[in-house]
Amino acid sequence: MKEIINFKLNGESTKLDTEGDRMLLWVLRTDLGLTGTKFGCGENLCGACTVVVGKEAVRSCQLPVREIRGKEVTTIEGLAGNGTLHPLQEAFAEHGALQCGFCTPGMIMNAYALLRKNARPTRDQIIQGMDQNLCRCAAHKRIVEAIESVAKKV
């Protein structure tokens, strides 16, 4: 059954007319053309599909679109404002906290939510908070360093 779903996507009012049980990941990638959010496992096991809903990092492969009604959704495409990179994006690029880059949008969105909740996390808190995001290229060391460098600045 199609339904109207109004929500905010990267700061802009957005209206969907679609089946509410579809997963946000596929609506983003297919209907809305935002392909920065990636599919990695489809079962809440890798974090490649992470977006931020309200203040929470959420796995969009597990989130029916009807649940975003009236909420604010931020994806990797919405993080940079007016042509300037978000400090996390800058830090990931500068620290070389990526290789193939496929996990990167999910990593950055997860870290973004983490820092919004706790602007100055300890290294252990970063590791804890990022532990459900997988990186096969094993860029973990630099990802932690990139997040730490942003945490220090705030």
Binding site: T35, I76, E77, L79, A93, L98, G101, T104
Partner: peptide
């Protein structure tokens, strides 16, 4: 710095 870095951190 990796030349593909910016494209990869912006989802582009």
């Amino acid at each position: 710095i990796r030349m593909d870095g910016v494209a990869k951190v912006t989802g582009k």
